[in-house]
C-alpha cells in the first residue's frame, strides 16, 4: 500500500468492517456506561419506560467498597497468570517434543489439538465429575489406590483446580503456535551451536528460546484477552465460591443474583479499565518483541 491512491482505496474497503466492529463495540459500551450511573433494580420496580434515577458515582463507590472487589481482582490475576505460566511452559516443552520425528506423529498432533474443540462448559463438567469428584472421580480412585485420602479438589484446591481445567483447554492453542515457531527455526543454527560447543541446555537457552520469544508474546497476548473473561469453567464447577470469584463472575452475580444492573454495570466499567491496564502493559512488551 504505497501510493496515495491505493491507501485511500484500502481505507474505503476497510470501512464497512471498521464501522460494523465499532457499532458492535460502542452500543454495549455506551449502554454499560449509561446504566452504571443509574439506579436500576428490576425487582424493585425500576424499568426503562418509567425512567431511571441518576445516582452519579454511587454505583462505582459501592462496587469498589464491597469486600469482594479486591479479592475478585486478585483471583482474576492469579487465574490468568497461572494459566499463562502453565500453558507457555508446557506448550514450549510439548512443541519441542512434537517436533521430534516419531511414529504416529500425525495422530498425536491431532490428539493434542483436540481439547481446543471441546466446549468450556463440557470440559469443565467432565473435569468436575469424572476427574475431580472426591467420591467417584478418577483422581479419587487413584488416591485411594495408593492408600491416600481423596482430595476434594474444587473446595480444598479450588484456584489450582480451575487453573488446571483452563490450562488444559488452552494448552493446545499455545502448543500449536509454538510448534510452528519451533519448526521455522533454521536447523543450521542449531548445528552451528552444536559445533560451537553448546550442550543441549545451552542450545535451548541461547538459540531456541530467543527464537520463540515472538511466538510466546503472541500466545500471552491472545490468551490474556480470552482468559480475563473466563466464566463457564467457574460457573459449572465452584459457582464462584472457595475464592474463585473473578471480576467477571462478581459482575455476573451483581446483575443476575442480586438483580442490580446499575452496580453490575459499574463493575463492568472497572473490568474494562483493568483489561486496558493489562493490555497497555502487554502491548509495550509485545511491541518491543515484535519490532525486532
Amino acid at each position: 500500500m504505497a501510493t496515495q491512491h491505493s491507501r485511500s482505496a484500502a481505507r474505503l474497503m476497510m470501512a464497512p468492517a471498521v464501522i460494523l466492529l465499532l457499532g458492535w463495540m460502542l452500543v454495549p459500551l455506551t449502554m454499560t456506561l449509561f446504566f452504571s450511573f443509574k439506579r436500576y433494580l428490576p425487582l424493585r420496580g425500576d424499568s426503562l419506560e418509567r425512567g431511571l434515577d441518576w445516582v452519579g458515582f454511587e454505583n462505582y463507590a459501592r462496587f469498589l467498597s464491597s469486600s469482594s472487589f479486591w479479592p475478585s481482582v486478585q483471583a482474576t490475576l492469579v487465574i490468568v497468570g497461572g494459566v499463562l505460566v502453565v500453558t507457555v511452559v508446557l506448550g514450549v516443552l510439548l512443541a519441542l517434543l512434537l517436533d521430534q520425528p516419531f511414529w504416529g506423529q500425525g495422530i498425536v498432533r491431532i490428539l493434542v489439538i483436540a481439547p481446543f474443540f471441546v466446549m468450556p462448559t463440557v470440559s469443565a463438567l467432565v473435569w468436575k465429575n469424572m476427574f475431580m469428584d472426591p467420591v467417584n472421580g478418577i483422581l479419587a480412585h487413584l488416591w485411594r489406590f495408593f492408600g491416600a485420602e481423596p482430595v476434594s479438589w474444587l473446595s480444598d484446591a479450588s484456584l489450582q483446580s480451575i487453573i488446571l481445567i483452563v490450562s488444559w483447554q488452552w494448552l493446545p492453542f499455545a502448543t500449536l503456535i509454538l510448534l510452528t515457531a519451533v519448526q521455522s527455526l533454521d536447523s543450521e543454527q542449531l548445528e552451528a551451536a552444536e559445533m560451537d560447543g553448546a550442550p543441549a541446555f545451552a542450545r535451548f537457552g541461547f538459540i531456541i528460546l530467543p527464537h520463540l520469544a515472538r511466538a510466546i508474546t503472541i500466545v500471552i497476548l491472545i490468551q490474556t484477552i480470552f482468559l480475563l473473561s473466563i466464566f463457564a469453567e467457574i460457573f459449572v464447577t465452584t459457582g464462584g465460591s472457595f475464592g474463585t470469584r473473578t471480576l467477571t463472575y462478581l459482575i455476573f452475580q451483581r446483575v443476575v443474583d442480586s438483580q442490580n444492573i446499575g452496580l453490575g454495570s459499574a463493575g463492568g466499567v472497572y473490568a474494562i479499565i483493568l483489561a486496558n491496564i493489562i493490555a497497555i502493559f502487554l502491548m509495550r512488551i509485545v511491541g518491543k518483541n515484535l519490532d525486532r
Binding site: 533454521d186 543450521e188 543454527q189 548445528e191 552451528a192 551451536a193 541461547f206 538459540i207 530467543p210 527464537h211 520469544a213 525486532r292
Partner: peptide
C-alpha cells in the same frame, strides 16, 4: 552456506 548466525 546460510552462515547460520544467531539473529538475536
Amino acid at each position: 552456506q546460510s552462515y547460520a548466525l544467531y539473529p538475536h
